[in-house]
Design a protein around this nucleic acid. Structure first.
Lengths: 179, 179
DNA sequence: CTAGCCATGTAATCGGTTACATGATTGG
DNA sequence: CCAATCATGTAACCGATTACATGGCTAG
């Protein structure tokens, strides 16, 4: 699964600009895929050259012009190839968890700070997912609801466990650690 | 958090070869960081040139020689710089969840297969984490136990939710989908 | 006998990030 | 007035992956 595949997937739903695509990503699958403009624009340009998508320039008043991209037949075939390919194993880079593993090299204060910081982040993400889940505007298909539900379950578990950990931390052990 | 940081972290614990490092990664933090030999060996060579680590060649009988790497003072400083830097946001690439989102473009059979496949994978990972948790051989520090506990909680939530989803899937809805 | 483990490495490539550049409009 | 939003792009770089090459030992 690379940028191209996800872009094709969202363009299959509706024609969009690079700017729109990024916001779509952030709103609909923040916990599955991340892409910056630096990825999206060059990818779109390459895809256009390869004939996977077509550009339509939309002039706007008071705003910069938009490049709205439409998926082509070739693009649909490429998406199809992706969706039929074997699922790639998930890859995670979870710095917070790594810090926990190396936690003995920092102070208890630092560790507690990290825990609270991560809890805050997880809660924030959870709120986003939940609000998305309840939003009737976006008419998600059943599958998207499934994805959302799965994501929420995982996120919720993380929040709960972190809360427990922080609780124990504040009530018990203040053992020494050193670098 | 890049390969180098994690390598330094494990070398701080014990001198190791590239081969060992990979296995250490897989055993101790499968759900936090992934690295292939193609990443590890070039990284180790670069790190040696930069003086972060030192190579000790260990001759073995009946097996190829090992390059055991030791962390240097410069390496320790580099690790320290990492551990003091702000925590990087986690990045995930979760193809399975993406497939769920695009689930409407495949058959119900395909979707169900994907769900079962992922459940199988999650369960397998969970067993690994649990066995690691119970293993008294590895004397983990409290922090590592925390990381493990956190990982297990998340993994467990995923398994439970997937089981529910599959259950509903098999008992209800067989609506039509098309590409 | 053959598959798998042990063990290391390199060259080519890829996918993505960072930092920069541009520039108008709107809201506080 | 400043920050944010809208909107696109490029050049340099980086970290990592893939595919290949080597080769002996061990267990089924």
């Amino acid at each position: 699964m690379k940028g191209q595949d996800v872009i094709l997937g969202v363009l299959l739903e509706a024609p969009m600009s690079g700017y729109d695509i990024k916001h779509y990503f952030e709103k609909h699958f923040p916990d599955m895929f991340v892409a910056s403009f630096g990825t999206i624009y060059p990818t779109l340009n390459r895809m256009e050259k390869e004939g996977l998508i077509e550009k339509e320039i939309v002039l706007q008043e008071g705003k910069p012009n938009k490049n709205i991209y439409h998926i082509t037949e070739i693009g649909k075939e490429a998406f199809h190839a992706y969706i039929q390919s074997p699922i790639e194993p998930k890859t995670i880079k979870y710095d917070f968890m790594m810090r926990l593993v190396f936690g003995r090299y920092v102070s208890q204060q630092q560790l507690l700070e990290w825990l609270k910081q991560e809890l805050h982040q997880l809660k924030e993400d959870l709120v986003k997912l939940r609000s998305q889940d309840e939003d009737p505007c976006d008419c998600y298909c059943d599958c998207q609801k499934l994805a959302l539900r799965f994501g929420i379950a995982i996120q919720q578990a993380g929040v709960t466990e972190l809360e427990n950990i922080i609780d124990e931390f504040e009530n018990f052990g203040q053992k020494e650690t050193a670098f």
